[in-house]
Design a protein around this nucleic acid. Structure first.
Length: 426
RNA sequence: CGGGGUAUAGCGCAGUCUGGUAGCGCACUCGCUUUGGGAGCGAGUGGUCGUAAGUUCGAAUCUUACUACCCCGACCA
């Protein structure tokens, strides 16, 4: 992509509406713009990151054996009546009517729609287990949207639903998903904790949350200082107890003592059991030829929230520091004097083409601006690798490589392998 | 919904107390000079001061109502 053609409105000052660092940087780096409270437009730079995360999630889901579908955002009241959630959900469920005055809602989650699909189309235990997922826009009319896309009302989520013949089989799928989520977060290079949780309004038996650790996290979690154990502090507190009183107490798992941390909940996995299947009469025939109520699990990852969470964990005073796997571009070629000097223009354009052919996602900063402007923008938007073609090149044919963290090296432009070797170690 | 705050050009802000017909920095446009850390000079574009009503000869400024947005709390990927 040529920088001069890209809709990338970077800002020197963060708009006053933004409070937390990720929100500020997403606005400054031209990733999103607000349309209404909790509702955002994703600009090209933001969408590129969103798609990269989406693809990591998709790859890992597919690898786990799950199958992708796409369900509607608009859902009829009748389905929600079956589980009584039309009543239970309250004002968070955004209700609308069509031209015939029939009631619908904007989907905040899809248990009803998917269970309806499965009960109508799956008849035998032989077709199980099934794990069906989608990556789709959700709408929850949050009481208080906050922190940009971190808690939007409209947001992108991967939600999956498993259908199992019995509890043991559900447990197995649950563990597979647990592992899948670990892989997703590890591929994104995020520091996270798996936290025992309250299953909340969605209901069911067992549930765990995946938290990306960050100071600005909305949740407080208690972690053991000497094991993997972590639990939502809500589950540990007795009436009237203060969160800080937990610090230093023995960890409930018997290993080490409790530390209090802040986390951003980016994933949540549940063993729902038979709740929804019973309400909606979702059965299959078992191996004895008798109707058997399905066991369900549901598993969510906040894809758009992960964008914000990744920034919360990876930034410095200059801007975003993207983990390589989700950076909007791998390499930014900063061409100084692109407009003026044909030698620079040709060299940088050829290198740009060459790197794209090698499979890299490359940005070429062909703007008329000077070095300062270009490197500031590159640091702000957090491109991991930079190649600077300027004065040095005109004198000695050398170009400079520079990582986002500031490591630099020089090489002849003809030796592009050196470039890649340099970046490979970083 | 309870509490607190903000609203003036795309972004950041001044002007409001003490009413006199809107300004600064950045961005943007044109020209020339620049180009290795957000360049310089010159000339420009852009605002019914959140909305509505009121007070006044005159309102960004005073009064009232409303709206939007942000922060703290209950809820959640």
């Amino acid at each position: 992509m040529l920088f001069s053609k890209l809709l990338l409105p970077t800002l020197k000052d963060a708009p006053q509406e933004a409070e937390v660092i990720s929100h500020k940087l997403m606005l400054r780096a031209g990733m999103v713009r607000k349309v209404a409270s909790g509702i955002y437009t994703w600009l090209p730079m933001g969408l590129k990151v969103l798609r990269k995360i989406e693809n990591i999630v998709r790859e890992e889901m597919d690898a786990s054996g799950a199958q992708e579908v796409l369900m509607p955002m608009v859902q009829p009241k009748e389905l929600w009546d079956e589980t009584n959630r039309w009543e239970k959900m309250g004002p968070e469920l955004l209700r609308i009517q069509d031209r015939h005055k029939r009631d619908f809602c904007l989907g905040p989650t899809h248990e009803e729609v998917i269970t309806d699909l499965i009960r109508n189309n799956v008849k035998s235990y032989k077709e199980l287990p099934l794990n069906i997922y989608q990556i789709q826009t959700k709408f929850r009319d949050e009481v208080r949207p906050r922190y940009g896309v971190m808690r939007g009302r409209e947001f992108l989520m991967k939600d999956s639903y498993s259908f199992n013949i019995d509890e043991a089989c559900l447990e197995e799928t649950y563990l597979t998903m647990r592992n899948t989520y670990k892989k997703v977060l590890e591929r994104m290079n995020l520091d996270y904790k798996i936290v025992s949780a309250d299953s909340g309004a969605i209901g069911g038996d067992a549930s765990e949350e995946f938290h990306v650790l960050a100071e600005t996290g909305e949740d407080t979690i208690a972690v053991s200082d000497s094991s993997e154990y972590a639990i939502n502090t809500e589950l540990l507190l007795k009436d009237g107890e203060d969160i800080s009183s937990l610090e230093g107490k023995p960890s409930p798992d018997g290993k080490g003592t409790i530390e209090i941390k802040k986390g951003i909940e980016v994933g949540h996995i549940f063993q729902l059991g038979k709740v929804y299947a019973e309400d909606m009469k979702a059965n299959v025939l078992n191996n004895e030829g008798k109707a058997s109520t399905l066991y369900m699990g549901c598993y969510g990852i906040g894809v758009s929230r992960l964008v914000a969470a990744a920034i919360e964990q990876n930034n410095d005073d200059k801007g975003i520091v993207w983990p390589h796997s989700i950076a909007p571009f791998d390499i930014n070629i900063i061409a100084i004097g692109f407009e003026k000097d044909q030698k620079i223009a040709e060299a940088s354009y050829n290198l740009y083409k060459e790197l794209i052919e090698m499979g890299y996602d490359v940005l070429l900063d062909d703007r008329k601006d000077g070095f300062g402007t270009k490197i500031k923008d590159s640091e702000l938007i957090g491109i991991p690798m930079n190649i600077i073609i300027g004065k040095q090149f005109l004198e000695t044919e050398e170009i400079e490589f520079r990582t986002r963290s500031g490591d630099t090296s020089l090489s002849k432009i003809s030796d592009s392998q050196t470039i890649l070797d340099f970046f490979k170690d970083k």
